[in-house]
């Protein structure tokens, strides 16, 4: 007899429901190392096909399946069920509008990403071959370029919840990825955007983002680097 774990899943269908509610499902553990996503799929395919959530790669690289599980933001595809205390409460990412069940509207999150000009800006003409970059310079990008835009960090940040204008840890980390890239020439343009009450200075080092990031990145540290650079420039 296979072991069963209770999943308490947040449900909301905008076409039918006025308010969201929680629905219990008994998920059967069929193999060792089963992930929360495997459980959600089991629910979809065998118990209730109306459950909606995003998923794609199922190995923690695409960032589709950010969810709030037992109060903490994480990716459902790399979270072992056995690491969680049942009943497992699954909710959509906090503070974003809910489209349906566990699907949220990421428009605001993506807009903030677009705002920091997250692309290489160069004014000098490119060389014939690749632009050179030493391994030390390249190392600066480690911990920054791996961001998968899953929104776990920004939606776990109380400053992001409180301030609708706050860029958020992810956008700021991505701006750092370019500001610190030795090939980039657009640092000043970006500083103008992030050197703002709703930019880096809204970060009060609450540190939720570090706990939430599934790729083990450190947005607070990146934001700290940016603050240091800005203060040095000012004084």
């Amino acid at each position: 007899m296979a072991e069963k774990v209770t999943f308490k899943v947040f449900r909301f269908n905008p076409e039918k429901d006025k308010k969201p509610y929680y629905q219990d499902f008994e998920v059967e553990i069929r193999k060792p190392g089963m992930m929360v996503l495997d459980g959600l799929n089991q629910i979809r395919w065998e118990m209730d096909g109306t459950l909606a959530f995003r998923r794609s790669c199922r190995e923690g690289v695409c960032g589709s399946d950010g969810l709030n599980i037992n109060g903490v933001n994480m990716l459902s595809c790399i979270t072992h069920i056995s690491d969680l205390k049942p009943p497992i409460v699954i909710q959509p990412l906090p503070s974003l509008p809910v489209v349906k069940d566990l699907v949220v509207d990421l428009t605001d999150f993506m807009n903030k990403f677009f705002l920091v000009k997250p692309y290489l800006i160069t004014y000098s003409p490119p060389p014939d071959k690749e632009r050179l970059q030493t391994p030390e310079e390249r190392k600066k990008l480690d911990g920054l370029y791996e961001c998968i835009l899953c929104a776990c960090c920004s939606t776990s940040c109380p400053s992001y919840w409180a301030d609708p204008e706050y860029l958020g840890p992810s956008a700021l980390l991505n701006s750092a990825r370019f500001i610190l890239d030795s090939r980039d020439e657009g640092a000043d343009e970006r500083f103008e955007i992030i050197n703002d009450r709703h930019g880096v200075w809204r970060c009060h080092t609450i540190l939720n983002c570090i706990e939430a990031c599934p790729k083990l990145l450190n947005p607070t540290e990146a934001i700290g680097e940016l603050k240091k650079i800005l203060i040095k420039k000012k004084f």
Partner: peptide
Amino acid sequence: MKYFGSGRSGAF
């Protein structure tokens, strides 16, 4: 983009 707050960046 700024709805509220002064024009100062908050850096100081």
